[in-house]
Amino acid sequence: MRLTILGRDGPYPGPGGACAGYLLEGPEGPVLLDCGPGVVARLRQRVDPAELAAVFYSHYHPDHSSDHFVLRYVLDIARYLGRPRSQPMPLYGPARPPELAGRMPYKDVFAPHFLESGDRITVAGWTVAVRATDHPLPCLASAWSAGGRRLVYSGDTGPEAAAQLVELARGADVLLIEASLLARRGDRAPGHLTARQAAEIGQAAGVKRLLLTHLLPEYDPDEVLGEAREVFPTAQLAEPGAVFDL
């Protein structure tokens, strides 16, 4: 089981960068978690998008979903060129807001499944539990379990959901968590965490590995990492292209 970082910037990509996109390879093929700007190009360096087992969205803000609207063309044109899938690609994401969820299907390329907080589903051999986060747009954190291993992805969240995220991530092998802000700069923004808050959640949950993502391109990544390591000394950055075996 393997996690590959395709992009980690937010809420916009830095020069040559990409926003949220993570490739999770497991029991029944690769799953794409989020598909922000720049992700499809990087995905195609790793796998044929038509061979994805599923695509999963934490929420529908553009930095997490805008490349979905070109991914659908990749899949549709693969079919036109004689490389069709046997079944439409499973697509998972929040049921709310319905006007944004309703934009995600395309022709018969996808088989959509819309989720609410508390749902527990099976995706490509993973058992997946989802919980609502603290974010202006409905967003779902997700816990992925298979083969005795567990990865938790926070999506976007603020500190009001810290207790729920600690419970979801308790004892996880990997917590991939947003760290958009810096406490040492006095940052505050609705629905986002400082690096310190992200580290405190990882520490409280007793996770084995803490990966920081959704980094503001204007900040020095070493400053973000330094703040987190004051609380969680082994914290790591989700470096684009990095591969982590679970």
Rank of each mutant, 00 (worst) to 15 (best):
Y92E: 01
L33Y: 12
L71G: 06
V47G: 05
S66F: 10
G17E: 10
V31G: 08
P138I: 12
Y22M: 07
V31D: 07
A54P: 02
D67E: 13
R149D: 02
G16V: 05
L151C: 10
Y73L: 13
F56P: 06
Y57R: 04
V123W: 05
H113I: 03
R72S: 11
L75H: 06
G155A: 14
V123I: 15
G125M: 09
A54T: 07
L151Y: 04
R120C: 14
P159R: 14
Y73W: 14
G148C: 03
I121Y: 06
D119N: 13
E160Y: 10
G148P: 00
L33I: 15
S154A: 15
P84W: 09
T157S: 15
I121E: 03
E28Q: 14
A41V: 00
H64D: 10
R42E: 01
R72F: 13
D119Y: 01
A50Q: 11
A41P: 00
A141F: 02
P97C: 09
V109H: 01
G29K: 05
G17L: 09
H68Q: 04
G14Q: 09
Y92G: 01
A129M: 03
D48A: 15
W144Y: 07
A146S: 11
P159E: 09
R96M: 07
G29D: 02
L33S: 01
D48H: 13
D156T: 15
R103H: 03
P13R: 08
F56V: 15
E99G: 06
G14L: 06
R44Y: 02
A111I: 08
R72G: 01
H113M: 04
Y80W: 14
C35Y: 00
R85A: 05
Y73E: 09
P138D: 08
L43Q: 08
